[in-house]
Design a protein around this nucleic acid. Structure first.
Lengths: 334, 334
DNA sequence: TCAGGGAGTGACAGCGTTGTCAGGAAAGCG
DNA sequence: CGCTTTCCTGACAACGCTGTCACTCCCTGA
């Protein structure tokens, strides 16, 4: 900028004014400065600008795994909203480790990101004291954290599970099992509890069958074929998230067991597998968007008490919940 | 830092030394400073550090759509490698628009990111002069750009297409069509050309049938059922990417046409649809990783001439290429 | 004619770090 | 004992920008 100033015979301040389209620069001066800028290819150094102004125009998103469609859809939504508001997005992955999450968050705070959207890692997420001390606004997504109330966007897990159970019951199922993901995950636990609650409330027969993960196609294959061979067999399962649904589908295919199924999380091709899979759909894009909007509200000075937004889920009815109307044993594929 | 210095009765420089674990600070001084730091919760301001040192420890990834699994897997890989090397990752989406891409790139250059990984947007990607003037190292992914040779990582499209065609031919198919995505995309064009070349080289009968997108399930339904009713029907199609594969599967399902199919790009559940889909697999994670490695090599001073790396593809053989052995018309679903 | 005012411009400080260099104390050496 | 060396520490400038304030014109109206 100093070079431009010298070349154009003005002060750096005037260059600054031109670069930032501030008023109060004469036409010809501006032309001249702009000419020099183009000629020597000057580009404003935003780092310095940021240092001076205090705002980084950057927000960060911390998730578990960017490649997981659920998170990647969130991140696309967050990036989009950020871009619209002239902010850049730093994405970071904590890979599910609270330790790494702490390191990552610390790095982001050091960078003075204006705000954070975080899918908290680990079993017992707690607001990091350094983070909270920094005063950086933060919105949690998908899972709440303990302690102080915080802005949080989660999806309506109990509602989703209820719709799944009710759908199965409406289709004649009585013995329904729940296959949750690792109980380390809050969502997995919440869905489990919802399942147990509804199971009991509806007075379904037998003790509630709940198996938490991690699951593999193999482990589920064993489990499912055992269940299907019981005297009063389990006729339907609810899977706790997309990972489990996938494993369950593979398992069913492998051992030729066919039961009712409602999966948590929609997935591409859910309508193309046989039978088309009925799912509880939560819209990651809306969740992400909601979270950023809340974050930007804070950035704009919203001081209202922390709120938890519960996003609705939607049951997408396809075929797989309609069994046992069509229930049958299929011969295992070769 | 000044506050810490005052409190600990040392100079800011000493605080700086402690914070950065530089040698040459006496044990007790360090203890004292560290104590103050913890007490008042000081956190280094990386923006200032960056300004002073010139390196931002940041790289950026520009893609078309973060929610697309192909890109999200790339981005996960890039983030991972960046994190390992103490760099942060800014992800940005150009949403396929060259104009937006230019704006985005300019913003990133202004931020002085150390390097860029870019999936170039638009039909005729060209190195942006402002970008190249900035001297920021850049690696292109998935599609090359015109003009000066640049570091580029692409996948072996001709090889992938060839393996697809050969597989179908080996399974008895002679009349094979190609359904490409929008010819605006370089990859779509390259795959089309590869298809035409191989089709001719193998001396397959008839004129090459090639239809470029964008496709919808509906448009494909019409097309496919027409093809299947010809006197010498098309017995197999190759789809040019995961979007097209999906549309084709829906179309086939809708009109009850069953032809041989090899899809470009693997996808989750490819093995669970009926019939399991044979695909040309390109590994986005490796592609992304390769790109970052190249980028970091440049950052470390590698001055060798720009290179284009072609990543191999792999044919994952499932069922859908085995038709017409099992070819049949299926009744359309209700 | 002169005060008052607005428009255009520039000097300067400071954002929070770190690299450089210099200074002082302690230690080693002849 | 004086001199060099080593270790620890601090003063200061600079990274590139912008907010503040002051200054100079030139124009307006009394």
């Amino acid at each position: 900028m100093a070079d431009v100033a010298a070349e154009a015979h003005v002060s750096v301040k005037t260059v600054s004014r031109v670069v930032n389209r501030e008023p109060g620069v004469r036409r010809d001066t501006e032309q001249r400065v702009r000419g020099v800028i183009d000629r020597i290819g000057f580009m404003r150094h935003d780092g310095a600008r940021i240092l001076r102004q205090g705002r980084t125009q950057t927000i960060a998103l911390v998730v578990e795994d960017l490649a997981n469609p659920f998170y990647s859809q969130i991140s696309a939504a967050v990036e989009r909203e950020a871009r619209i508001r002239q902010h850049q997005l730093i994405t970071a992955s904590a890979e599910g480790s609270p330790t790494r999450e702490r390191v990552v968050l610390e790095g982001l705070i050091n960078r003075r990101v204006d705000g954070l959207v975080v899918v908290p890692a680990g079993e017992q997420p707690v607001v990091d004291p350094t983070v909270s001390a920094s005063g950086t606004p933060i919105v949690y997504v998908d899972r709440p954290v303990r302690g102080e109330p915080c802005d949080t966007v989660i999806s309506d897990n109990p509602g989703g599970v209820r719709s799944a159970v009710e759908h199965l019951v409406a289709n004649g199922h009585r013995r329904i099992a729940f296959l949750g993901d690792d109980a380390e995950f809050w969502t997995a636990r919440q869905r489990r509890e919802a399942f147990v609650g509804i199971h009991d409330a509806l007075g379904l027969p037998g003790d509630t069958r709940v198996v938490m993960g991690p699951h593999t196609a193999d482990s589920l294959a064993t489990r499912l074929s055992a269940w299907s061979r019981e005297r009063t067999p389990v006729t339907a399962v609810i899977t706790g998230n997309n990972r489990v649904t996938l494993a369950a589908l593979h398992a069913m295919r492998a051992v030729g067991v066919e039961m009712g199924l409602v999966g948590y999380d929609d997935f591409e091709l859910a309508d193309l597998v046989e039978p088309a899979v009925t799912v509880v759909h939560q819209d990651p894009a809306s969740i992400g968007q909601k979270a950023v909007l809340q974050l930007f509200a804070r950035l704009l000075g919203d001081e209202s008490p922390a709120q938890t937004v519960v996003m609705p889920t939607r049951l997408i009815v396809r075929e797989s919940g309609r069994l046992p109307a069509t229930a049958r044993l299929r011969k295992a594929l070769p």
